[in-house]
Design a protein around this nucleic acid. Structure first.
Lengths: 165, 165
DNA sequence: TATTGTTATACTCTATAACTATA
DNA sequence: TATAGTTATAGAGTATAACAATA
């Protein structure tokens, strides 16, 4: 386990990385904010999935997912087809227009990072990716607050837990 | 320079790290949201500074800084004394109550990270800190959008640029 | 005239809770 | 009764613009 000073410094850097995220968001098309871009990226990578699965991948509540999805669907970038196996569900899929939008997003993102990180090597970028991925894994589902040393029966759902009765 | 696929993956991980940040925010005291915690942390590290300097350190517009500072000042965690050298400025300083609040924040943050990252070594945490710090440096002041290959005369200010007349 | 800081307004992202329709 | 998804509401964070006081 790492020492306390390192944890405090890591917390500081996590806070500061928001500036980088805002820099990335600033180059997005006007009608495609970061939430929409995240939906398109995940659908591009994971193929046809359901809302609940997308909410898991986004690590946000399904109500949030629903709003983002509605936004990209309204612009014709995805289609929502009924799930034959469960009429409550909808299967999400990128449309050709959505794929074109993805290409534009990749183009802009790559150009920005290539400019800003021009002096980074492949290995350095890969290291950062690896450590950030592991960080996310170590946190698991962060939408449930850690409640103490003994935290039994933690919900790992995608939605607001129902009130205890 | 790194290849395109790495840039796209890095962008994805930057987007996903938001879940970790939300997990950190969730353990903060109710009257001390992330913005307030960032102000306290920076004042703790950098001593007495002015609003404009704090805005630089936060990498946000000074209007945002002003709001965060007003919040922590209203709770007695910092004091704003007039700058004898410039009557427009105010010098910010942590109060004893503010330092106590900082201690509480450090305690909670450290406990959370120690739990989540219990299987990380000092070296691994240090690596992540180092790479995130470098990432932020490589982006510099991200509050100005990158406008193209030839971007002369880029403003590096802490406030909304005045409209060109 | 330019700069420091504040305030008003608008937008994005998120969580909570209530609701529907299916299971 | 429980689950998949939607919508309404509220709170936090941020940027833009207009403003007041001082340089």
């Amino acid at each position: 386990m790492a020492e306390q000073g390192l944890y405090e410094e890591l917390a500081r850097q996590l806070s500061a990385v928001g500036a980088v995220k805002r820099g990335m968001a600033r180059i997005l098309p006007a009608d495609c904010p970061a939430g929409s871009a995240a939906v398109l990226t995940l659908l591009d990578r994971h193929g046809d999935i359901r809302m609940s699965r997308l909410a898991e991948l986004l690590s946000v509540d399904m109500s949030v997912t629903s709003r983002h999805v509605a936004h990209v669907a309204a612009r014709g970038w995805i289609e929502r087809s009924p799930d034959p196996a469960d009429k409550r569900s909808r299967l999400l899929r990128l449309t050709p227009a959505g794929r074109a939008q993805m290409d534009e997003l990749s183009r802009r993102t790559t150009q920005l990072l290539a400019t800003r990180l021009g002096d980074w090597s492949d290995d350095e970028v890969g290291q950062l990716i690896r450590l950030m991925t592991r960080l996310r894994d170590s946190f698991g589902d962060c939408r449930v607050a850690f409640t103490g040393p003994a935290a039994p029966d933690v919900h790992q759902t995608t939605r607001t837990p129902a009130e205890a009765k």
